[in-house]
Simulated scan of single mutants.
Amino acid sequence: MRDSEEIQAQLNLAASFFAKDYQERGVMKWQGFFLSDHTEDVAKYSEKRQARNHR
Rank of each mutant, 00 (worst) to 15 (best):
K44G: 04
E47W: 04
F18M: 13
D21G: 03
S4R: 12
E24D: 15
R52A: 14
K20I: 09
Q50M: 04
G26N: 07
A14P: 00
Q31W: 04
W30S: 06
R55C: 09
E5D: 12
S46H: 05
E24W: 15
Q10N: 08
E5V: 07
Q8W: 03
F17I: 06
R49G: 00
H38W: 14
A51E: 14
G32K: 03
F18S: 09
S36M: 07
A14E: 04
E47H: 03
K29C: 02
T39N: 14
K29H: 10
A14N: 11
Q23C: 04
Y22S: 07
Q10G: 06
G26I: 00
S4G: 01
V42N: 02
T39I: 12
Y22L: 03
E47D: 13
Q31N: 11
S36W: 08
Q31T: 08
E40S: 07
I7L: 09
D3G: 04
L13F: 09
V42D: 02
K29F: 07
I7P: 00
M1I: 02
D37T: 11
D3M: 09
G26P: 01
Q23W: 00
R2I: 01
F34I: 06
A15R: 15
D37C: 10
F17M: 05
A19H: 10
M28W: 12
F18C: 03
D41L: 15
R52P: 00
R49H: 03
G26E: 14
F33W: 01
M28Y: 11
D21Y: 10
A51D: 05
K20L: 13
R49T: 05
R49W: 01
Q8N: 11
G32H: 04
Q31D: 02
V27S: 08
K44H: 08
A19P: 01
E5P: 01
S16Y: 03
H38A: 12
R25I: 11
Y22I: 02
W30I: 01
F18V: 05
R2K: 13
E5K: 13
N53L: 15
R25M: 13
G26R: 10
E47I: 13
W30T: 01
S46G: 02
K20S: 11
M28L: 13
E40I: 07
S16P: 00
D37V: 14
A14T: 05
R2E: 14
Y45W: 12
N53S: 14
M1R: 10
L35D: 00
H38G: 06
I7T: 07
L35H: 00
E5R: 10
M28C: 00
K29I: 04
Q8L: 13
A51M: 06
E6W: 05
N12F: 04
H38S: 12
Y22E: 03
I7Q: 04
H38K: 11
K20D: 15
Q10K: 12
A15W: 05
E40Y: 11
F34C: 03
W30R: 06
A9W: 04
L13E: 13
A43M: 10
K20R: 09
L35C: 03
N53Q: 14
H54T: 14
V42T: 01
F34Q: 00
D37M: 08
I7M: 03
L35P: 00
D41I: 03
R2T: 06
L11F: 08
N53M: 15
D21F: 06
D41F: 08
M1T: 02
A14Q: 04
F17Y: 15
T39L: 15
D21S: 12
A19K: 15
K20M: 03
E5C: 01
M28I: 09
A51L: 14
